[in-house]
Design a protein around this nucleic acid. Structure first.
Lengths: 246, 246
DNA sequence: CGAATCATTGATCACAGTCAACTCTAGTGG
DNA sequence: CCACTAGAGTTGACTGTGATCAATGATTCG
């Protein structure tokens, strides 16, 4: 079992609403702009967390869209299988991040979402959210902003850069995402197998291995099995270039 | 260091008094679900088209976000310049498509938008649109759906495929987009220079040239200068694989 | 323990990038 | 009208990055 390097969720003294306060949509993903009454309404939409074991399926590709999810702990991956049956890892989802927004359009999930390790999510009915946001303009605005941000991020990934830089950029991006959620930005677990990282970055697993070796030799990281420690953030940032794309 | 490659903003050409019926947001991008009164309100937001000469700048990267744009004729490209001053073509925009949605989040345009040939757009104030959509829930829903669709499309592009397939997929995608807007799906102009296509697809211009030659030899396309004719759509579709990514 | 998966390391190869030369076209000015 | 230029596009020769193939080591689990 992959021992979590990360401590549990940073205790962000939250309201103890009836729903899942730790998944608070507001604090996790939709910052600012709501009064406390609106906030209560919002949080009442968030269901209690459910836990998924490693490799278990949260949503199946092409199944009908009903909810979005907020990751509460652990890690998920989005995987799509194309017409030729080729698997493609599209994304990793960390605690505090939303999953399923790209399903709104087609009303089907375009990819499967699978637990990478033991992980949990809160479910948010999209119907309810959509209905609520109709009566709270600023919530609607936040939703659009969030989508716009994801669109922007997704575009940034579009660039093609050498393999070493791509991997460095990936690690640096993970570091920043963990940091943003209150976890250590220097020590965290790469819970997914190398094969998934390789697939996600469009490289061979062998290449990942060689690049990790080089980074270790250069003293940039230390890596034991899946436990990563960033030893020299400045150098890593340098390797990543300005491509802060995750 | 990153000097803008392009000449100053072009002056707008023709003005009309009222809104631009040809750019009708509803017909172009946000299908269905509005009554005629709502439709009128929506269309009143759409300004009269402005024309831009080749290489002139519609929006400059990092400038403050105020409006989105609906392409009315011609073609635009989105180009971003990263920290190292490297240019990256992120997108091409055809008639009927919306530009600028990825600027909502940061309230700045993440890329410059430049006319590829003589082209025109209608401007839509995002403030006004946002305000209106607060009072028309179904409009708001459409906006979210549109963003979700763009997010999904953007993810599809993420996959990495061999160069010949990537180019075929690009042409096939263009064909479908032209078709969706009522243009010929077999004959259209690749208005942009080869260099831009190459940059967009992450290839060298020489590779583009060689692949075009091969496709011509194989009778898949005919290409005179920038005028493209797809001679065998089935073969093209085959080359593109199932990656209908644009 | 043995089976199975994951990770690492080495040897080889191919796809596409780079460098360089050349052609073709459009635009400019004498 | 032609000469000249500048840029786009094409073609050829060479090279390097990273994929593929293959074998070995490490770890977990039944």
């Amino acid at each position: 079992m992959s021992q979590q390097v990360n401590p549990p969720i940073a205790k962000a003294a939250h309201f103890q609403a009836s729903s899942c306060s730790q998944c608070s949509l507001s604090s996790l993903c939709l910052p600012l702009g709501l009064d406390s009454n609106e906030l209560d309404q919002l949080e009442s939409l968030v269901e209690a967390p459910k836990t998924y074991q490693e490799s278990s399926v949260l949503v199946r590709q092409n199944s009908p869209f009903s909810s979005i999810f907020a990751v509460r702990s652990g890690m998920f991956k989005s995987v799509s299988v194309d017409g030729q049956g080729v698997e493609q890892v599209l994304d990793f989802h960390l605690p505090g991040e939303l999953v399923g927004l790209d399903a709104i359009y087609a009303e089907r999930y375009p990819s499967s979402v699978i637990a990478v390790d033991t992980a949990s999510v809160c479910t948010i009915s999209y119907n309810a959210l959509s209905h609520l946001s109709a009566s709270i303009p600023s919530l609607q605005k936040q939703l659009v902003r969030l989508l716009s941000k994801k669109l922007h991020n997704s575009r940034e990934q579009h660039v093609d850069i050498p393999a070493d830089q791509r991997l460095a950029s990936f690690l640096f991006g993970l570091s920043k995402r963990f940091e943003a959620r209150g976890y250590s930005n220097t020590q965290f677990s790469l819970s997914m197998p190398r094969r998934d990282i390789a697939n996600y970055l469009h490289m061979a697993p062998e290449t990942i291995s060689r690049l990790f070796k080089k980074m270790r030799d250069d003293g940039v990281i230390s890596l034991d099995r899946r436990a990563l420690s960033i030893e020299n953030m400045d150098v890593l940032r340098g390797l990543a270039g300005c491509s802060s794309a995750l």
